[in-house]
Amino acid sequence: MMIHESTTRVRGLDLAYTDSGGDGVPVLALHGHFGRARAFAALAAALAPRYRVIALEQRGHGHSDDDGDFSPDAYLADAAAFVRRLGLGPVVVLGHSMGGVVAFRLAGRHPDLVGALVVEEAGALNRSPEVPHPVLDVRAWPRRAATLADLRRQVESRGVPDAGYFLESAVEHPDGWGFLFDHDAMVASQRALIGDWWPDWLASSCPALLVHGLDSFVLPTAMAREMAARRPGTTLREFPGCGHWVHDDDPAGFARVVRDFLGTAVANEA
């Protein structure tokens, strides 16, 4: 399956996105901090042709512009404008981590744009002590390295067990290998996401799937279960042996639960 890469103008910014194409039900996919749109390529292949996965590269990530505003409201406004720009609503919205918060806020603030919701590893409360480390401080990470392997080594030497997720945003520049994201901006963006998002989580009524890795260091299991219990129409799927990146730890299992959920949710919406 060919994934098409495109750019569109949204709220004064050039935002990149990928599109699996076809005539399937549109699914807007939103990555987390430090992520890329292409993180959803495997999911797009697994869901095709019934579903068309359109993954937005959010502001300040990948090849998308930013204007210095990394507030949660800025991400939310981008997502709403993007859906309207492409004339897709209502869509299924799927988000991972920070993208999951954007997704459920979009469902709550713009219910006309969202028909069903898939949230992977995004909590309704993002602050200490419930989340021990809500900010990964990357300001001391290298800006450039001689090789990709050296960039990995330097990042992992700073306490990251596996830098693979972050290296998806690494590219070769004229002066060496470095990340597409700005280190200071990512710290500011994470800090802006600290807060109580329970009102937004509870604000929508569309069918929702909450995916949780039982080994996650970001979303506590007790919180995931409380989120599912307090929001009507929410299905919780827990993955033993998986951490914060369930879609990477168990891509086949993740695709299966998403496909099963959408098979019911989209049919009911229709």
Rank of each mutant, 00 (worst) to 15 (best):
M1D: 11
I3W: 15
I3F: 14
T8C: 15
R9D: 15
R11D: 06
G12A: 11
T18S: 15
T18N: 12
D19A: 09
S20A: 14
G24K: 01
P26K: 08
P26W: 03
P26A: 14
V27A: 01
L28H: 11
A29V: 03
G35M: 14
A39R: 02
A42D: 12
P49Q: 15
P49K: 13
Y51Q: 09
R52S: 11
I54A: 14
R59I: 00
H63M: 08
F70L: 14
A74Q: 05
A81V: 12
A81G: 06
F82Y: 02
F82M: 05
R84T: 09
R84I: 01
R85D: 13
L88R: 14
L94A: 10
G95I: 01
M98I: 06
A107W: 07
D112P: 08
L113S: 09
V118S: 06
A122F: 02
A124T: 04
N126M: 13
H133V: 13
P134K: 02
P134G: 08
A140K: 04
R143A: 06
R144E: 00
A145W: 03
T147V: 00
T147Q: 05
T147L: 00
R153N: 02
Q154S: 06
Q154D: 12
P161S: 09
A163F: 09
Y165R: 10
F166W: 12
E168C: 03
A170W: 11
G176P: 00
G178P: 03
F179G: 07
H183F: 09
H183R: 13
D184L: 05
A185Y: 00
V187P: 00
S189A: 15
L193N: 04
L193G: 01
W197C: 08
P199D: 09
D200E: 15
L202M: 13
S204L: 01
C206F: 05
A208I: 11
V211D: 05
L214R: 13
S216F: 06
F217T: 13
V218R: 09
V218S: 02
T221N: 08
A222W: 03
R225Y: 07
E226P: 09
M227Y: 01
G233H: 06
L236M: 03
E238R: 13
P240G: 04
C242Y: 04
C242E: 10
D249K: 02
D249H: 12
A255K: 05
A255W: 08
A255V: 13
D260V: 12
F261Y: 12
F261K: 07
L262D: 10
G263W: 09
T264N: 06
A267C: 01
A270I: 07
